[in-house]
Design a protein around this nucleic acid. Structure first.
Lengths: 325, 325
DNA sequence: GGCTACGATGACAACGTTGTCAGGGACACG
DNA sequence: CGTGTCCCTGACAACGTTGTCATCGTAGCC
């Protein structure tokens, strides 16, 4: 800015005025300044500006499990869209479900003075965020609650969705149902398991006829779980998330059994498989929209009590869930 | 920092020393400072630090077309991994293939003083970047060259990949092949079209027996194109990218014809469809790794001449491409 | 002519941090 | 006791901006 001022023969403050479109600059002067800016390729240093103005970095932090998972990349897209409307950029990072990394990344975001934080919590304890929240950084938890920290939360109806899946299978005559879920340390996995049990209870399925194999899962563990389930005459399966459902499909392709199947999380091409895969769907992008909406409301000063939003899940029957035993 | 200093009864500089693990602070003093930091929840302001030190924001900008496209989210993941190794965060944004937005976002990244820029160019002209590059911001173009701006570029072998696809189909007896590509304004689409034509020429397919329908495409335009192609006895198709291939599959599901099919870009579940989809595969994450690797080399001072890297594509035969006419 | 009003511009401080350098106390040595 | 050395600490400036306030010149008015 100094250089620009010197070249244009004005003071640095006048350059600042031009850059900020402030009124009260002679048109001729402004032209000179603009010419100098152009020829020097000057670009205002946002860091310094933020420092001086003291408020916003026009950035929000998004911490999730893995960007390359379609569920999270859809979510990211949703967040990005809202952020752009509010003139913010999105700083994103993947925690890989590791609480230590998550903590480190979140604190790094805070040190960069993001305007707000969107977090898919990894692990049960988010205590380190309490100080940040007290300090005024708005936080919204996505997909899972913050555990020991209270803040706005946007969830999906994990329990209801899984219950729907069980009810649907029961309606089609299944009395022996298997559930393959993720590590129950993960909130959504635990909730879906709860929904599974509750659903079985409501459908009058005996305690001995519901089978749950919780993860983490790879194709090998899925294969093992499946064989055990088939041995106990399971005729229908529920995949606890998109990764597991796809793993299931891959393993099933190499086995003779053709059980009914419902997956939690919709995924691309589910409708083109044979049979098309019935899923419990929810909208990742909408989740991003909702969470970012909440965050920007907070950023703009909304200080109403914390709100928990639960987005509905819906059953999309496509064929695989309508197979009778 | 002031508050911490006051509470600990030391000067602000000593706090700075403690925060930066500088040597020469009495252990007792350091403990007091740490206690004060803890009790006040102090977190160093990175913006101010960067301003003072004048160098790095520990951030790189990643500008792509759409994060929610699996190709780009895989790429993002690759970039993120390398960035983390180098202690950087990733600021990402989607341009939606709109040159105006791309320009705006890229300049915004520059104003934030990112350490480097990874760009999937939208549109043919990247001239606005020239000034930034001169000013010392390293730029790496991904997936498409920068057009009027020269900088490191990491591409995939679009021409070679498409030629491979054509050759593969020709080997299986096809003499009438259709290519559904994206808008030829997009570099990759134009290159793949070129590969298609070149491949046909080499396979001895007559000029009148190759059909190209360039996009942008939706299911409707794909349907129209397909009917026209079938009318001219096309027996094999190439999908120009993951979106188009999936659109093709969806449209074909509602038609009686079962042509051979090869898709450019691998996609999840391609192996589980019926028939499994043969694709030209390349590794989006590897693309991200390579590009980020280049960028960090530049950031760390590598000033060798610009390099163009072309990552290989490979044909993954799965069934759909091995159907004979 | 002397006054105010106003438009254009600049000097200076401040944002939160760190690099430089100087100060002060303790200790050893001559 | 004076001097030099080492360790610890603090005062101050600077990074690139912008907000506040002062200054200057000119025009308009009585």
């Amino acid at each position: 800015m100094n250089d620009v001022a010197r070249l244009a023969g004005v003071s640095i403050k006048t350059v600042s005025r031009v850059v900020n479109d402030e009124p009260g600059v002679h048109e001729q002067t402004a032209r000179q300044v603009l010419a100098a800016i152009e020829s020097l390729g000057f670009r205002r240093n946002m860091g310094a500006r933020n420092l001086r103005q003291g408020v916003t970095t026009a950035t929000v932090g998004l911490l999730l499990e893995d960007v390359s998972n379609p569920f999270y990349s859809g979510l990211t897209r949703g967040v990005e869209e809202v952020a752009r409307q509010f003139g913010r950029r999105v700083l994103s990072a993947s925690s890989d479900e590791d609480p230590v990394q998550a903590r480190e990344l979140a604190l790094d975001f805070c040190a960069r003075r993001v305007d707000g934080l969107l977090i898919v919590p990894a692990g049960r304890e988010q205590g380190y965020l309490a100080a940040e929240i007290r300090a005024g950084t708005p936080v919204v938890f996505i997909d899972r609650p913050g555990g020991d920290v209270t803040a706005d939360t946007v969830l999906m109806d994990n329990v209801g969705g899984t219950m729907m899946a069980v009810a649907h299978l029961a309606e089609h005559g299944h009395r022996h149902i298997g559930f393959l879920g993720d590590d129950p340390e993960i909130f959504t996995a635990a909730e879906r398991l709860r929904g599974f049990r509750e659903g079985c209870a409501r459908a009058g399925i005996e305690r001995g006829a519901e089978f749950a194999a919780m993860g983490p899962h790879d194709e090998h563990s899925i294969g093992t779980a499946l064989r055990a389930m088939f041995d106990r005459s399971v005729t229908a399966l529920i995949g606890g998330n998109n990764r597991i459902t796809i793993g299931l499909l891959r393993v099933l392709a190499g086995m003779p059994e053709r059980p009914a199947l419902i997956g939690f999380d919709d995924f691309e091409l589910a409708d083109l498989l044979d049979p098309p895969v019935t899923v419990i769907a929810h909208d990742a992008k909408a989740l991003g929209h909702a969470a970012a909406g909440r965050l920007f409301a907070r950023i703009q000063g909304d200080d109403s009590p914390h709100r928990d939003l639960v987005l509905p899940a819906r059953l999309v029957p496509r064929g695989s869930g309508e197979i009778s035993p």
